[in-house]
Amino acid sequence: KRPMNAFMVWSKIERRKIMEQSPDMHNAEISKRLGKRWKMLKDSEKIPFIREAERLRLKHMADYPDYK
C-alpha cells in the first residue's frame, strides 16, 4: 500500500469533520467538496500536510525498502 500524499493526509481529517456535520451526505459528494476545498487552500496552509506526507513517505521507504 502506498503512503498517503498531502491531499490524502488533509482529506482524512476533513472528511471526518464533514461526516460529523452531514452524516447523510454521499461519499462522492464529500470527495467533490474536499477536492474543491483543497484547491482553494493557500500553499502556506498545505505545508503541514506536505510535511506529514513526506514523513510518511520516508517511513514507508524505511519499512518497505523493496517497494517499487
Rank of each mutant, 00 (worst) to 15 (best):
R16F: 07
P65H: 03
R16V: 12
I50N: 07
K1R: 06
F7D: 01
K59R: 09
L34V: 05
K1T: 13
Q21E: 14
K36P: 01
F7Q: 05
K12V: 13
H60D: 14
P3Y: 11
W10D: 01
R57E: 15
A28W: 06
R55T: 13
S31F: 08
K68N: 14
P65V: 12
R55G: 07
K17C: 05
L34N: 01
E45V: 06
K12E: 15
R51I: 11
I13P: 03
A62D: 13
G35Y: 14
E14I: 02
N5W: 05
H60L: 08
L41I: 03
K42R: 08
A62T: 13
F7K: 01
P23R: 02
K42L: 07
D24F: 06
R51W: 11
S44W: 12
H26W: 06
M4Y: 08
K59Q: 12
K59W: 07
K12R: 11
S11N: 06
R16S: 10
K36R: 12
R57V: 06
K46I: 04
E54P: 00
K46F: 00
N5E: 09
R16Y: 06
H26D: 15
K46G: 03
M25S: 05
E54W: 04
E14C: 04
K17E: 00
S44T: 09
K59F: 10
Y67P: 14
M61H: 11
R33A: 15
K42E: 06
I47R: 09
E20G: 04
S44Q: 15
K32Y: 09
A28I: 09
K39S: 10
A6Q: 00
K46S: 00
D66K: 14
I50W: 05
R2V: 14
S11M: 06
M4E: 12
R51N: 10
L56N: 07
K17H: 05
R33L: 15
V9S: 01
A53P: 05
A53N: 05
R16G: 11
N27W: 14
E29G: 01
H60V: 12
E20N: 08
P23K: 00
M8D: 15
L41E: 00
H26T: 15
H60N: 13
R33Q: 15
H60S: 12
E52K: 04
K42H: 08
Y67K: 12
K17W: 00
P3F: 07
I13G: 09
P65Y: 06
A62E: 10
E52I: 08
S22T: 11
M19K: 13
I13S: 06
N27Q: 15
F7S: 00
K32E: 15
I30D: 01
P48Y: 05
K36S: 13
M40V: 03
M19P: 02
E54Y: 07
S22L: 05
A62Y: 10
E29D: 11
R16D: 12
E29F: 00
D24T: 09
R51H: 07
E14V: 00
E29Y: 00
H26E: 15
P23M: 01
P48G: 06
P48W: 04
K17V: 04
L34D: 03
W38L: 00
A28H: 09
N27L: 08
M19F: 07
P3I: 08
G35S: 15
R16Q: 15
E20T: 09
I50D: 06
Q21W: 07
H26L: 10
K12N: 13
R37Q: 13
E52V: 06
R16N: 11
Y64F: 11
K68S: 11
R2P: 12
P3W: 05
R37C: 07
H60K: 15
W38G: 01
E14A: 03
R33I: 15
I30F: 02
A6E: 07
M25T: 07
V9W: 06
S31D: 14
V9R: 00
P48S: 03
W10F: 08
F49H: 02
K46Y: 00
A6M: 01
R16L: 12
K42C: 06
Y67D: 15
A53G: 00
M25V: 08
K17M: 04
L56R: 04
I50Y: 12
V9H: 06
S22W: 12
H60E: 15
A53Q: 03
R57H: 10
Y67F: 11
R37N: 12
P65C: 12
M19V: 12
W38T: 00
L58Q: 13
R57A: 13
S44V: 10
M40L: 13
S22N: 14
N5I: 04
W38N: 00
M25H: 03
M8T: 14
R33T: 15
S44K: 05
M8P: 04
K32N: 09
M25W: 02
W10T: 04
K68V: 06
E14D: 01
M25Y: 01
P23Y: 03
P48D: 03
D24A: 11
A28P: 04
R51M: 14
R2H: 13
I47V: 11
A28D: 15
K12D: 13
A6K: 02
I30C: 07
L34P: 09
G35W: 09
R37A: 14
K68G: 10
D43H: 10
K32C: 06
K39E: 11
E54H: 03
K59D: 12
E14L: 00
E20F: 05
M8Y: 11
I50Q: 12
S11E: 15
P3N: 15
E45D: 12
S44G: 09
S11I: 00
W38F: 01
K39R: 10
P48T: 02
R57S: 12
M25E: 02
R15Y: 11
Q21V: 09
R51D: 10
R55P: 01
D43Y: 09
R37M: 11
